[in-house]
Design a protein around this nucleic acid. Structure first.
Lengths: 224, 224
DNA sequence: GATTTAATTTGTCATTCGATAAATTAGTAT
DNA sequence: ATACTAATTTATCGAATGACAAATTAAATC
């Protein structure tokens, strides 16, 4: 439709290339139209007939699983975890660096809409993804902050992780507002992230200090 | 299915009652199954035949519009805005009170899933809702904070509103994690809100002070 | 109890859906 | 050029979809 289709009939791709092409374009298609959209509509965008899809994927659901894999698994960068634990800079700086590169990956219409659609279709995939975020991102963040603030390295409490989740979710939701609703006011992403990170770091410092206080108090009078 | 259907054939509702009943149950149905689900499936849950729906709503889309109205318009409470501007207590306390009652309304699976589904179906309704949140909730919050911190009452900057959005979005996303993904760690809602609010208030105080600094500096040397 | 009104169901339509089988055709090896 | 292989299309199935028209039936009115 938009493309002039240079080689009028550019048929016969190799099996591997075609499969990759299908997945790439299926991501774009499902991101816009949702997973309930027809395989015929997808085939139209692929410039191919609908039954051909079934030579590469046994069923529509299998194609969707391949899409999940391409988005959630393949786009995850192990370096992210290294950024957060590199103690040559402050936690605040590391958080800014991390969210800069992390949002470079997830702040695009495709990723976000696939994420939202998949979450509504069935919570499992998103739950798994959120567990990954928790273990690989939020737990290290809290642990590193504890260390920097001079607290003993005990496992993060649920309440602390949840506090990190609120920052993370706030930044994520900023992306949703910007990329899905075109409603972001401040478009300088790095500035929004910097403000959120600064508030989180300062907030966590206070929160950790308070929990130490509370612990001392309860230790003194043996009360919960 | 779950209900034993007490009055085996409880037919003939009044037009008004039936319409209300349809909308109420359509909210629950579409929240679970999505707006693409069939009118026959909905009719089954209503204990009624499918064509009857078309005596009350000209089309499926009209029914969906009625659902939007019931969720977004009818559940909005004007008192919310009063809570935020009641200067007999601190801004932090007001924010805690507000988010307590606000989340009492929107933190339920139905509301949240309808919100997410409608946002993916077409951004308009959600954009309108977000504009309402901005004008009636976030603008007042920033204005009240400015006043409490002794700043002159100038209109909130985009960056300040965005900062408030990040708190709001963080709290919202906490609800999503809790109610849609069953993945909230800290289930004491009020505690999560209190932490988020405290970090926001402290963060905004610093942010406002910084922007005053920057303004003075630029005034002194006539530079942007 | 007969009549009227309006709520509800039965029956049906043209489309669209995911999926399969069989026919075709492009590219490669001989 | 011929034969073979694999990519792709054509044709088609049964089920499900939104919507409409006509028949039915419960409840209100007389």
């Amino acid at each position: 439709m938009t493309e002039p289709d240079a080689t009028a009939k550019r048929k016969r791709m190799s099996s591997g290339q075609r499969r990759e092409d299908f997945i790439t374009k299926a991501i774009a298609f499902f991101a816009e139209e949702g997973f309930e959209s027809s395989t015929r509509g997808l085939a139209r965008q692929l410039g191919v007939t609908q039954p051909l899809l079934y030579r590469y994927f046994p069923s529509k659901d299998d194609l969707i699983l391949a899409v999940y894999d391409a988005v959630y698994v393949n786009r995850w960068r192990p370096e992210w975890e290294e950024i957060l634990t590199d103690r040559s800079t402050s936690v605040e700086e590391r958080l800014n660096t991390f969210y800069r590169v992390y949002t470079d990956v997830i702040f695009n219409r495709e990723w976000m809409r696939i994420y939202l659609f998949s979450g509504l279709k069935g919570a499992d995939i998103n739950r798994r993804y959120m567990q990954l975020v928790r273990q690989r991102i939020l737990e290290p963040i809290v642990a590193e902050a504890r260390a920097e603030f001079g607290h003993p390295p005990s496992p993060a409490t649920d309440s602390e992780i949840e506090f990190a989740w609120v920052m993370h979710g706030g930044i994520f939701y900023y992306g949703v507002r910007d990329l899905i609703y075109d409603s972001a006011l401040e478009t300088r992403k790095d500035r929004v992230v910097a403000d959120a990170v600064a508030a989180f770091v300062a907030g966590l410092k206070i929160k950790l200090a308070k929990s130490v206080e509370a612990e001392h108090a309860s230790e003194a009078q043996r009360t919960d």
